[in-house]
Structures are given as C-alpha cells and as structure tokens.
Design a binder for these strands. Structure first.
Lengths: 217, 217
DNA sequence: CGACCGACCGAACGATCGTTCGGGTGGCGC
DNA sequence: GCGCCACCCGAACGATCGTTCGGTCGGTCG
C-alpha cells in the first residue's frame, strides 16, 4: 500500500543545505521541485522520500536553522545566569554575554549563509501549524537577545523604558542580519572584524541615552 | 496592428503600489498576474496595457523606489557640500547630514513600506539590463551614505581605514533597513523614535574606535 | 459623421508547476 | 530461500502559470 503520510522524521543535512542554497538564490516560489531534484542529483519522485512536500522542506530548513541558533544562544544565556548567581555583582559579564551572542550569531551566519538567507525570506508560504512553530522559535531567540540587551541597559543606563530596550535590541538584530542580506559582498572584512564593529557600535552607542547632536536647521 | 513593444513610458503610481503591496506579502514568484489583476480591479489582459511583462513591473517598482530615495539623498548631500564650501571648518554639519539622511530614509520607509519590502527582496528575477540599472541606483544610494559616514569619521575618528568605514556604513544600513523587515511590528515606536535611536547608537558607537571590553573567558 | 486611440475585456495558447502512482532495486533478518 | 523496507525511478495527473490574440467601448479631433 501507499500511506506515505509524513516522513518528517529526519532528512539528511546535505540534501537540506543543497536545497537551501538554491532557494537562497531564487526564493521559495522561484525554485521548482525539478530544480531541487537536479541539483541534488536525485529524481523528482526520489526527493519525496525525504520530505512530505515542498512546504515541508521549507519548514525543515527553518526549524533546523533556528533550533541551532536558539540552542547556542540559550546555552550562553544560562552560562551567564550561573556566573551571576555565583558572583552577584557582575558588571563585566553582561557585556561578555552580549559579545558572545553576537559572535555566535555572526559565526553561524557566515558558515550557513544560504540557510540563513532562507530563514530571512519569510514564513508566509508555510501552513498555519508550521508557521506557528517557526514563529515560536524566532520569538524565543529574539527573547534571549532582548534579555541580554535589557541586562546591559540595566547596568549601564538604568531606568531605560522597556519599549526603548526592545527597539534597541531590534536595531542590534538589524546590524547582525543585514550584513549578508543585500549583495553577496565578501569584502566587508572577516566575521571577527564584523563582530568587533557590531559589538563596539552597539555597546558604546547605547551609553549615550540622548544623542549629543546639533541640528542643521 | 499589434506591435505592443514596450510601453515602459509610465504606469500609474496607484497600480504600482497596489501590486507592490501584494508582492511584499507573497514575493515576486508567489504572486501571479491573476492575483495582481484581481486586487487592482482590472482584468488579466487589461494589466498588460500598463507594463510589458511581469518582470517589467518588478523593474518599475524598483526603479521608482530607488530613484526617490536617491534624489532625496543626493539633495541632502549637495546641500551639505554647499554649506561646507561657505564655512569650511564645519564640524557640526557632518553629523547633521548623517541625521538628515537617516531621517529621510526612515520616513520614506515608513510611508512606502510595501514598495521597500519589494526592493529588499532581491534583483535576481530581472533581466540583465534591468538588473544592472537597479544595481547602479543601489550603488549610487549606498555611495551617498558611505560618503556621509566617511566625512563623519574624518572629523571624529581621523585615520580610520577605508574598509572599516565601509563596514560601518553597511551596519548603519542594517539598522535602517531591518526594522520593517521581519515581522510587521508597529510597536517599535514612531519613525521619529527610531531615527533618534539609530542616529544616537551609530554616532556615539563610532566614537570609540576599539571597544572598551572585558572578555568573559 | 467617420477615423483614430487608449483602456479594457474574455478566451485561449503552450509551458511548467507540485504531486502521485506503480514499479524496481539492493541489502538485511529469518 | 522469502519477505520486508529504505531508497529510487519514469511517466503521468490536473492545475496554474505568463503571455497573446481579437474585439468592444467611450471619447476626441478633423
């Protein structure tokens, strides 16, 4: 009999990354199953033994990517919390947490550029159930970053409004995610240079609550 | 006779923005000409009297959006140059230019969110000629921003390497463009708040050349 | 009035889309 | 030996895709 149902169990990582590489360049709707079959060296119907549908493939790429990012981030956050419990008055660790999170993000980004591009392109073509699952992972990840930012602000700029903290965390996300977004430019320096700049700009930039500015008119 | 050739001349702005709104949500390949015809209240073949092809529509959206952004930016840059010519030792105007550019970008972004989302989604589905034209506009726009950043760095952190300036300009782009990218969250504050934060973080953040950091390990 | 023109339409074209079906391997347990 | 199962294939399905064709309508100019 048939009854293929869902073989969501597990799909080889190399197939997933090959598909992601193609989708990163052409987009989800712009990439056909026949394209994917050709570049993975398989036949069209052979592909369907590794995932239930094209939409399922998109979900698997998203799920695996965000899970990796999230587990790294939560591990760093938990290490920070344990450290703080041991020495409650830590004012330097909080900057270290922020720096470690940025480093982990940029490193992962530079090593899985194609998958990351797929993650940014959006969740819309997914079923409500899959979309919700991915959205929850995104939320948890951005919560970790917001937490780190709020801890930093609590030390270096106490009394900052919650909304301002979230806005600044969002801008930090912007710097971290944009880099590999527009063109595929490799002339922007090493991931290490990038991390240094992002960390420096953000931490120093947040210290001045109201900008010391002159207006031109 | 037929001979429709290319009626690239001009297509009504309202049609373009309606199409952009749909493409912003579903992507280029995910939006069919029939979808576009339905939401613009026209018939399928009626649409083809306003642009030559679907790809041409994408080009028109890109061309019009980047041209608007670019003309605003170049106007601000030229005003700054004229000002500097009159009073050569201007150290405050350079920050003003940066602030004005950010303000213009965020304002335009918040007023044409759909079009901007289309602009970010990529140039790949376009013909070589159209792709080149759009890429040139993008380049000119990012050149203006890089120029402003390099002027700022020349005053406040002289001797900064060219590659570092470009990297920092890129990060500024990240903060400006990411905001409306992921979720459609309106709870991040007004465009004015956003501009203030971006300007503050960037200008203050660039002042410290090497980050004053402690490492956690 | 008749010629012309831009705006618009319904119907259809060939191509390509995601997916399914029936069958064919080769290896491992019994 | 036989049966099972993961893996893979060619061929086809209905649907939808971008685009084209021939024609209608309402105005405007001569």
């Amino acid at each position: 009999m048939s009854a293929p149902a869902r073989q969501v169990a597990h799909c080889p990582d190399d197939i997933l990354s090959q598909c992601a590489a193609l989708m990163a360049r052409q987009g989800y709707h712009g990439t056909s199953m026949r394209d994917l079959a050709r570049t993975t060296g398989r036949s069209l119907s052979g592909l369907y033994h590794h995932f239930a549908s094209k939409e399922d493939l998109l979900y698997l790429i998203n799920e695996r990517g965000f899970s990796s990012l999230l587990s790294n981030a939560e591990r760093l956050r938990d290490a920070y919390r344990a450290e703080v419990r041991r020495r409650p008055a830590g004012t330097s660790e909080v900057a270290g947490l922020l720096r470690d999170l940025i480093t982990a993000h940029v490193d992962y980004f530079s090593r899985h550029r194609s998958e990351m591009r797929v993650l940014m392109l959006g969740t819309q073509p997914m079923s409500p159930a899959h979309g919700e699952a991915v959205r929850r992972l995104k939320q948890r990840y951005s919560d970790v970053l917001s937490y780190a930012v709020s801890e930093y602000m609590a030390v270096y700029a106490p009394g900052t409004a919650r909304s301002e903290v979230e806005r600044k965390a969002w801008l930090l996300f912007g710097m971290m995610n944009w880099v590999f977004g527009w063109y595929a430019v490799d002339e922007l320096g090493s991931p290490r240079d990038l991390t240094t700049d992002i960390f420096g700009i953000f931490t120093q930039g947040c210290l001045a609550s109201s900008p010391v500015v002159t207006t031109s008119e």
